[in-house]
Design a protein around this nucleic acid. Structure first.
Length: 324
DNA sequence: CATCAGGGCCCTG
DNA sequence: CAGGGCCCTGAT
């Protein structure tokens, strides 16, 4: 296969399987499937009440379409060929986990009555952390976030998609997919560097090999406590306190895990909460203690509320803190 | 032009 | 435990 035909070949996913998921209430479809603070990537697409994302699962490339049906979620699973009953039976619990369909956060939504949080909860009640991806894929994203501006992170991820992933066509969309760790493990640090990932090539390769060698078991990790997960993940080369902070909340759904505030978030929260240029991060951490045991979830509500606002109103000071 | 910092982390001394 | 180096890119 020559280079051109590889680039052009989209997988056509025309087989459809319909399922319905029943989310635990309170549940907010749009606030869960779209996080405006995240950078855009070509493996997913959101519009009000609808969400498309690709998935690599058990060696198959899938397209998922979610639709908001009030208190249930309609999911269409697109695939190249019909899916077996067994395949679907394995997939459903994974969707339940990845899209955090069943977590109960009513304790948080009902508990806090301070003026600021009350108004934010009123808007976003039912917003939860969402992994959307496997832990391998998520760690890749965290690595390309490190020490880079948004534009560069986007560029790195798209380069990786184009080299190692596929393009799939379903429901009139063409989206990128991630890849299986084995595909990247066959590559080399030098080849990765050509994709402009810089010194992260070493980190990506290292991580990829550990997954390809099955040294990390995502499903076992999900059963462990917050501190066990933190310890295990920090052992990984290239994953430090900032990345693990995101991971514990965003992928393992620990709602209290708030221990470090990265510098750029510190600047934004200093302004938002204290109307000052730079407040010590300890002071910010102390502020969130009032939301115990939901410190990180409270952070998430405040953070995403700000970025939802940014979608339809210009916030001058915020724009200056977001380095594109 | 050159220099520098940026959604960090590792390694060294 | 502080601080230099790391790839690349756009800002200054």
């Amino acid at each position: 296969m020559n280079y051109l035909s590889k680039v052009m070949a989209h997988l056509i996913l025309k087989n459809k399987t319909f399922i319905e998921l029943k989310p635990r209430l309170p549940y907010n479809f749009d606030a869960n499937l779209h996080k405006p603070s995240h950078f855009p990537s070509s493996d997913n697409l959101w519009e009000k009440g609808k969400y498309w994302i690709t998935m690599v699962w058990s060696g198959k490339y899938l397209g998922l379409k979610f639709e908001d049906m009030k208190n249930k979620i309609k999911v269409v699973i697109y695939s190249q060929k019909p899916l077996s009953r067994g395949f679907i039976d394995d997939l459903i619990p994974e969707l339940m986990w990845r899209f955090n369909i069943d977590q109960d956060i009513s304790g948080f939504c009902d508990k806090f009555k301070d003026e600021n949080m009350r108004l934010i909860i009123k808007k976003w009640k039912g917003m939860k952390p969402i992994a959307s991806n496997s832990i391998y894929e998520t760690l890749i994203i965290y690595i390309i976030l490190q020490n880079a501006t948004v534009r560069r992170s986007v560029q790195m991820l798209e380069n990786l998609f184009n080299k190692f992933g596929k393009k799939v066509q379903f429901d009139n969309k063409i989206l990128s997919t991630f890849w299986e760790s084995e595909a990247m493990a066959k590559s080399s640090e030098e080849e990765l560097r050509e994709l402009k990932v810089g010194y992260r090539a070493k980190t990506l390769m290292n991580l990829t090999k550990q997954f390809a060698n099955k040294e990390i078991d995502e499903f076992e990790l999900r059963k462990k406590s917050r501190d066990e997960v933190r310890r295990e993940i920090l052992k990984l080369y290239g994953i430090g306190p900032a990345s693990v902070e995101y991971l514990l909340f965003g992928d393992f759904y620990f709602l209290d895990a708030l221990e470090t505030i990265p510098p750029w978030e510190q600047k934004i929260l200093s302004r938002l909460l204290f109307n000052k240029k730079s407040v010590p991060s300890q002071k910010i951490l102390n502020f969130f203690k009032r939301y115990k045991p939901y410190e990180k979830l409270a952070f998430h509500y405040i953070w995403e509320d700000l970025f939802w606002k940014r979608k339809h109103e210009h916030i001058d000071w915020l724009e200056k803190e977001i380095r594109l």
